[in-house]
């Protein structure tokens, strides 16, 4: 179980997150949504250790991990799919999957991770993670790296951004499979992903608004709460 207690986060003198209290239970699917600038990505980055909260504590399975580094959290079982996949010069897809898995894996095993995100694996393994790959391909490889890492807490920052509809179908299937044995936290505006959530967390101006998933989906259906608003 992951608990955020009284988390505040300031950046450049601006209060981004204001007293966030949340509990993420094991093997549940959470979607964080809310307007642009509401603090969603900052919250996800604080969970991963990329940002340090200004105040408050993070408790994971009873241990205070507030001061743990990104590496330490990754080793504890946290995984983070970046909104914009990182480009590398020289690093190949296969090498990235090796690092994600934490050991040397066979090309066959690496292929299974790529197949899950709908990529014809053999063609990609020796490709470098550079501009020669399209945004959609990079995004799918980013998700494959999380599947390979198999974290206990998987965080996805807008995984649907930049992928086509065909792979969107795959994405929802990946999430369905993931929920079985891990806590999944997804930042998303997508109705289909929101529908999958065990709990929807609505952020607005850095605070959590109490919201029931059903009410929220009705609002979306009535266009009272349009994407990004």
């Amino acid at each position: 179980m992951l608990e955020l207690k009284n988390i505040c986060f300031e950046q450049n003198g601006e209060l981004i997150l204001n007293n966030i209290n949340l509990t993420f239970e094991d093997n549940k699917f959470y979607v964080i949504t809310g307007p642009n600038g509401s603090g969603k990505s900052s919250l996800a980055k604080i969970i991963m250790g990329i940002y340090k909260p200004t105040s408050g504590v993070i408790i994971y399975n009873g241990h205070n991990i507030t001061d743990k580094s990104i590496t330490e959290r990754a080793k504890l079982g946290f995984g983070y799919a970046f909104q914009t996949p990182t480009l590398f010069k020289g690093l190949t897809v296969w090498e990235l999957l090796n690092i994600a898995k934490g050991k040397k894996i066979s090309k066959k095993e690496a292929c299974t991770f790529l197949s899950q995100v709908g990529l014809c694996a053999q063609k990609y393994l020796d490709r470098e993670l550079n501009k020669s790959l399209s945004g959609g391909e990079l995004k799918r490889i980013e998700i494959a790296s999380i599947i390979a890492k198999n974290p206990a807490i998987a965080i996805f920052d807008e995984p649907e951004a930049g992928i086509d509809l065909w792979s969107f179908e795959h994405l929802t299937k990946i999430f369905k499979d993931m929920v079985l044995d891990k806590t999944t936290i997804v930042i998303s505006h997508q109705e289909r992903i929101l529908k999958m959530a065990d709990k929807v967390i609505l952020l607005d101006k850095g605070t959590v608004k109490e919201v029931k998933k059903e009410d929220f989906l009705t609002k979306i259906a009535n266009k009272e709460c349009a994407k990004g608003e």
């Binding site: 590496t71 080793k75 995984g79 990182t86 590398f88 090498e95 690092i99 790296s145």
Partner: peptide, 23 residues
């Protein structure tokens, strides 16, 4: 680049080494 590899479990030094070697 460092952040991505650290989020997969490498330390900053290990990540730097991998990035240079692969480059």
């Amino acid at each position: 680049e460092l952040l991505k590899l650290m989020s997969l479990g490498l330390t900053e030094k290990e990540a730097e080494k991998v990035i240079i070697e692969e480059f």
